[in-house]
Design a protein around this nucleic acid. Sequence first.
DNA 1: GGCGTAACGGTTGAA
DNA 2: AGTTCAACCGTTACG
Length: 343
Amino acid sequence: MEIINLYGEVNQLGGVFVNGRPLPNPVRLRIVELAQLGMRPCDISRQLRVSHGCVSKILARYNETGSILPGAIGGSKPRVTTPAVVKSIRDYKQGDPGIFAWEIRDRLLSDGVCDKYNVPSVSSISRILRNKIGTLSEPRQCESIKTPPAPLQYGPVYPYPSYSGPGAPTGTRTGSGPAGHIGLPRSWHNFLGIRAFMDPAAVPGSDGHPAKVEEWTSVPSMTNMSSRSFPPGIHGAEKSNNELDVRFPQQSSSSLPGYLSACAHSPPNQYCVYGGPATNYMSTGHHWQPQPSSLTPSLNSRMTPSLSPGLTQRKPPLNKHHHPAHRLSSASWRHGGNTMDVK
DNA sequence: GGCGTAACGGTTGAA
DNA sequence: AGTTCAACCGTTACG
């Protein structure tokens, strides 16, 4: 694979990508737009010079979640050290300053504060004691000596408090199955595309979080994409991409509101905020707080127009079977007098 | 030829 | 401060 510069590589189609990093939102948006215009995925792939696997994935995700945004990269599973757990630990510690971490762990279980799936590990408890309750007392040096009576399973800690439903883990992780977009393993994902709809106030927009756009702003040519074609309000998201020499001509007829709503599931510095302040579309900041019914976001309701006030009506989900008449030549095509130059 | 997806190597960020 | 781990990414190759 040819390395064209510090950041970008070139795929087989000649498109530039950054390994390990999501495509810029404008490109993702463009993929969905083109698909909604009836262009076949293979043509989109060629047109945007994005691998068909990626096109397929993005469109599948969009169909699934209603969001064009990438998932949350990095980070860890939702913390098990919820305020309630910390409070309990504090209480235990206050009640018995000499209590050991493993004893706390046992008590969390026996008292029902946690279940076996979300009980913090001993090391986590130790860290809590050290970092959050450190001032209470510190007989901790003994903890490494006083070991639990039996080897406890410190394995994965499970993100969902008291989650013991049918899908409860059987010794492995909870959350989604492999590649699940529904039972998303991290709480961010539980409201993929949902939060911004449900709680516009939770979409702070440009709140000072610096968007990590440096790579893409450096990418020489993300295959000629232009921000012109994106709906108002999304422009903030592609701000950085304006610098790209990208050329997409037509004013997009598809406003595709809500495409970017799912940025709530991305951390503030998440690269998905390519363009920084996408004020009304992107939520920054982590939203680890419990999400009501978050495990089963209604994907059917995700596109409910009423959930996206002020935004134009969502288009229906993409049809998997595009009408042949909508096939577009990859050479050039016109929209509103503008011509898309493929090369 | 088009499409879905596993494998792969990479990035990221909380613990 | 550095490491680990598990999430995600897009590309590639295969069926």
